[in-house]
């Protein structure tokens, strides 16, 4: 039996159930707004968004793997390409490009030209420290952790802060092998 070729992000995106983009954008906006009211501190909101994203990511990964048919990636470079081309397309309907590799291939940037989360957003002066899309970095971190890659994901550029694109820096910290659940002397 020939292995099933991974489906492209477009193919998966065309098949999954979708919700109205505006509904999605506004719902996310409402969540951020509520968090700002509840937590008061912008830093806390960033943290909370990241944590929420992480919780989404650790579940999302299984859906991603099951629907896309992607098998194991050989190296981190392939992983980054898959996230950018298949992952973002599948769940957000946009593709990212992968650039700025460092010399030893452990960190790269995912650049998003277009971001459906921020369609109606302007950051007020009081929230200048807010990473509005911090949930995305959490999702990427959570999803990668489930495929045994500990990563650190940070925002480098943000259009809401006057940059020309969204840039997520993904840094591979280490790969964790499968764990032994039992101790030797048991």
């Amino acid at each position: 039996m020939a292995p099933v070729a991974p489906r492209s992000g477009d193919a998966v995106f065309a098949n999954v159930e979708r919700v109205n983009a505006e509904l999605f954008t506004l719902t996310y906006g409402a969540i951020v707004r509520q968090l700002l009211t509840d937590l008061e501190e912008v830093d806390e909101v960033n943290k909370q968004l990241d944590q929420m994203g992480y919780n989404i990511g650790i579940r999302l990964i299984d859906e991603f793997l099951a629907k896309s048919g992607v098998s194991r990636c050989v190296d981190f470079k392939e992983t980054a390409e898959v996230i950018a081309k298949v992952g973002f397309k599948m769940f957000l309907g946009v593709t990212a490009s992968v650039t700025n590799w460092d010399a030893d291939g452990t960190s790269c940037s995912l650049v998003l030209e277009d971001n459906p989360l921020v369609d109606f957003v302007e950051l007020p002066d009081t929230c200048q420290g807010l990473y509005y899309c911090n949930i995305l970095s959490g999702v990427v971190r959570g999803a990668l952790e489930m495929v045994s890659m500990k990563t650190e994901v940070t925002w480098v550029r943000d259009m809401l802060r006057g940059d020309d694109a969204y840039e997520l820096r993904v840094k591979l910290l280490k790969q964790v092998p499968e764990e032994y659940p039992y101790k030797d002397d048991e």
């Binding site: 990964i61 299984d62 793997l65 099951a66 992607v70 098998s71 194991r72 990636c73 050989v74 190296d75 489930m146 495929v147 045994s148 890659m149 790969q175 092998p177 499968e178 764990e179 032994y180």
Partner: peptide
């Protein structure tokens, strides 16, 4: 030695005279 993700290959089933065991592991470890 435990393997890193993406390393090595894996089997998908084995068979004895009384039963067959089929196995699948997703990259997320399920």
């Amino acid at each position: 030695v435990p393997q890193l993700p993406g390393q090595g290959c894996s089997f998908h089933s084995f068979q004895t005279n009384t039963y067959k065991l089929s196995f699948m592991e997703s990259p997320s470890g399920i």
